[in-house]
């Protein structure tokens, strides 16, 4: 993995740096619930939040710890189906506990499929994470128990209530989602800035040196797999319960895994902010493209053409980012901020 730039997040406490998160939280809890239309919430914010969290999780594993995974959506699926079953089979389990148990289930599967990382490196490991992708999808489809014997493996979200409040409406689901994302991202932020986070980076940048100075390399890799899968699992719950409400195993396919990988490439590897920027881009970009296409080509730009041109543009963007801005939108953002700063002063 190429050397990643030190994030703004890695510097000691700087009040100016805390101003932005404060504004964002104010917007998240004040402005959006009051003014956002239900279209904005349902079609943009909910998928954005779930994908951001998944990308934060993958970034921990791939961006910080350097272990390329192509099976992220399998862990989303484990989270979603585990939450469904915990909720179904355990009487009166609080929603938050359901989510945490779902995350722990995903972490367990993550450790299992992370075990090869103890012996394998690089491409051999990347290919072995595909095993998780295919196996999980197969198991969830094949064994009816996971979907309470639904013939096509479909699960539906239960009623969402926290402390007696119903969160089934768009705003309620949004608040649930945004709170989970903020809390977990905060914990990840603390983790990557701790000695453990620096162990991740050490393993990524030079595994041999890390081993020699006494970083517990194997334990560090498994920890990365576990925490990353936990977060991605909870993201899967958000995806299934707050965004789509009805999901099937096929929805967690390889394309979804690639999508999450693309988010962190475009947003910036080893950057928490990058996960959010990348997710925002991935969610908004098809909408913009379809508007632009319809505007420029009219009826010729049907859904098939949209789908294909979306693939082409996305693929091209990946390559362009890798060539021109390996640290992604996050670095682009920094440069922009500096330029504005130098102009105003």
């Amino acid at each position: 993995m190429a050397v990643q730039a030190l994030d703004a997040e890695r510097l000691p406490i700087d009040w100016q740096k805390l101003a932005l998160p404060a504004v964002l939280i104010a917007v998240a809890y004040g402005l959006i619930p009051t003014y956002a239309s239900s279209y904005l919430v349902e079609a943009i914010l909910l998928p954005f939040l779930a994908l951001s969290l998944a990308a934060v999780g993958l970034n921990l594993l791939t961006g910080y710890c350097g272990q390329l995974s192509l099976g992220s959506s399998a862990f989303m699926a484990v989270g979603a189906f585990a939450a469904y079953n915990f909720n179904l089979r355990v009487e009166a389990l609080p929603l938050v506990a359901t989510m945490i148990l779902a995350g722990i289930s995903a972490a367990g599967i993550g450790i299992l499929f992370g075990l090869p990382s103890l012996r394998l490196r690089g491409f051999y490991l990347a290919v072995s994470t595909l095993a998780a992708q295919f196996f999980v999808q197969w198991a969830l489809t094949k064994f009816g128990w996971f979907s309470n014997d639904n013939p096509s493996g479909v699960i539906s979200a239960p009623h969402l209530t926290v402390a007696g409040f119903s969160l089934d409406g768009p705003t309620g689901r949004y608040l649930l989602s945004v709170t989970m994302v903020i809390v977990l991202t905060g914990l990840v932020w603390r983790l990557v800035n701790s000695a453990i986070g620096r162990n991740f980076i050490a393993v990524r940048d030079n595994e041999t040196a890390a081993r020699v100075i006494g970083v517990p390399v194997l334990r560090t890799k498994l920890l990365a797999f576990a925490i990353s899968s936990f977060i991605i699992g909870v993201a899967g719950v958000l995806w299934a319960f707050t965004y789509l409400r009805t999901v099937e195993p096929a929805g967690f396919n390889l394309d979804r895994s690639f999508q999450i990988l693309f988010i962190i490439i475009i947003g910036g590897l080893a950057s928490i902010r990058g996960a959010f920027l990348g997710a925002a881009f991935i969610v908004v970009f098809p909408l913009v493209l379809s508007r632009l296409g319809a505007f420029a080509f009219g009826g010729l730009f049907d859904s098939g053409v949209l789908d294909m041109s979306q693939r082409i543009v996305l693929g091209a963007l990946i390559i362009i980012f890798l060539i021109a801005e390996p640290n992604g939108l996050s670095a682009l953002f920094d440069r922009l901020k500096r330029r504005i700063g130098s102009r105003s002063s």
């Binding site: 050490a202 940048d205 030079n206 040196a209 100075i213």
Partner: peptide, 15 residues
């Protein structure tokens, strides 16, 4: 064999 993504201080501390 340094950790390129860490600061000088963090590299040393990792020892």
């Amino acid at each position: 064999a340094l950790f390129g993504g860490l600061s000088v201080r963090d590299n040393i501390a990792s020892g």
